[in-house]
Design a protein around this nucleic acid. Sequence first.
DNA 1: TTGTAAGCGTTATCAA
DNA 2: TTGATAACGCTTACAA
Lengths: 363, 363
Amino acid sequence: MKFEPVTIKQMARDLNLGISTVSRALHDSHEISEATKKRVVDYARKVNYIPNPIALSLRAKRNRSIGIVISQFNNPFCSQVVNGMESAFYKAGYQVSIVQTSESTEKEMKAIQYLSSRVDGLLVSISSETKSTEHLKDLYEKGMPIVFYDRICRDIPTHMTLSDNYRGAYEATRHLIGQGCRKIAFVGGAATQPIVQERRAGYLSALEDAGITVEDKWIHFLPKGGVHYVETEVAMERLLRLPRDKRPDGLLTAWDKVTADAYKYLRRHNIRMPEELALIGFSNFPLTDYVSPSLSVVQQQSEKLGEVAAGQLLALLQSKRKPLKYQTEVLMPEIIIRESSLKLKSKTEEQRAVSKIKGAKKR
Amino acid sequence: MKFEPVTIKQMARDLNLGISTVSRALHDSHEISEATKKRVVDYARKVNYIPNPIALSLRAKRNRSIGIVISQFNNPFCSQVVNGMESAFYKAGYQVSIVQTSESTEKEMKAIQYLSSRVDGLLVSISSETKSTEHLKDLYEKGMPIVFYDRICRDIPTHMTLSDNYRGAYEATRHLIGQGCRKIAFVGGAATQPIVQERRAGYLSALEDAGITVEDKWIHFLPKGGVHYVETEVAMERLLRLPRDKRPDGLLTAWDKVTADAYKYLRRHNIRMPEELALIGFSNFPLTDYVSPSLSVVQQQSEKLGEVAAGQLLALLQSKRKPLKYQTEVLMPEIIIRESSLKLKSKTEEQRAVSKIKGAKKR
DNA sequence: TTGTAAGCGTTATCAA
DNA sequence: TTGATAACGCTTACAA
């Protein structure tokens, strides 16, 4: 089965007109008589003529569309981001074409190659597996407007929008400390991910500032980034099997899926939150406020992030040449404290808990 | 800023070769000397030549890519479906380009026009606002392989894959009846949606078969399909303000977002489930098993649905002409009973509850 | 007012 | 073994 659309050439033959006459009539050119115009337009409607966008693109070297490279489609954070982008571009009259990399470098390269020349610009979030960014660098050097969002790429000088992962993790950890936790664990996604590293850095700083010494065994990364439940399960088992004095009383999960899976694990094994383990995690999942115990989260401004990144790309699309200065927009995630990490009721209790730690830095 | 890729023509000039020589060398043609081949290939690699997919498409009238038209990106059911499709097409060597219609007919038409000629086939789920399907019908008649999934279009004879919405709603309603509910309400998405209508039909049949007379006031549709919380809120308020003897004791929600919002409403207003109102709803949201009370759902086989639809489209792409017979694949959703609708502990209790209704049909 | 032809980047046919 | 040329569908400068 193959698509065989009506072309201008075909219509010209049918109507006994020149190709350019038909083209101009369809564009309502003033140099075509009303009679011919009507004849052409009516006929075009009758046969349901659709201009071939491929041919238009080839000629105009302009597509009026942009591409979004997304890691995991099936991830609320990602889809919220895309929603923000979509609405911004829709307003600007651009079509949006989305491709998924599923965290695979190979898919990412294919996707980018696929989109090159098909779109006027690219919004990219690097897949976690990706090491080299030569494919993107080269495209960028040839003038393709690219904006990075969320998982940025420092090698390529361009606009980017991301969350303040460091501070999100820092504040979440501080909150756990404030709740009296002293043995705070960290379960991230893939160790290779810069954003996971930043989150770990925030976590470490918060502990350091509070004068808490970190145990290596409290920190876990997940080889495949936590796509499957079993990865988180293994990490949780390792944490909870530590000897009593090392066993964590607080946990920061640094990846949406990992947060959900850690929560599931704790519920399945009847480990009470926050009494046995206080949990807070990065998450943009819906319904986290209705699970029981309700889940404390570091929630990114996902739609906003999408909108801001979209604005940056639109700016690149409109500017004649590469800008001299690039912006990096950083959005602060929201720390939402709920039952899963709330041990102490009052602020004063909290202050007392923190002040008990010796060697804590003042902020 | 504009993308200016390296072309064959440019390379030909640079290397002092003919255009076709370069093209053939890149395709490893036997009629090109090894020396020239190497020269060309090396140079192409050096300048990072990427063949222009637009030009290839225009020439070959073949894109090795398919388009997915999706209603709401930010909907777990949809993203799960797309995941299923994506992996199927990836295996078959197709690129997948996804566009979102946000339930708007205008966007849908633009999206389809955008994809026409850019892709070799289309997987379409009609947006809820859409009345006329002329734009699709015409495309299909010109030979574009189209497969409908989830929200199908009966006017166009082609393959389709969908859930058994009727039976899903029927069984869910039967379950509520089995739990002793007699005043069972129904909150759907948009009334115009065929799949919502089917769900209502299943709901009605189950009540009828049980000999229960339905009140009109128990049935609500949401003008915008329930995209915003407030729509569900209004419907819930209407239901719960009914006089005591008419006030429902059971509720079937027939749309993922509506289910989540109805649940939120009940929790926010401290209405106990299942005691005051037993809730079961269509939903593919994650975490429904961990909310409290845990949420009973009619869960569609979303990934499977995507895979099956993808298989159908691949079949169309491979066949020479329009097939004489079209398949309609129907997948049974899973009814998952959890706390929000579970009033009776044992099967026998349940049987007793049902047999109390007089005039109930035997099944 | 209408038609012819060139060109966008590519491949395929034909000729050299 | 290589190169010129036509064609894919469209727009546009130029010619009629």
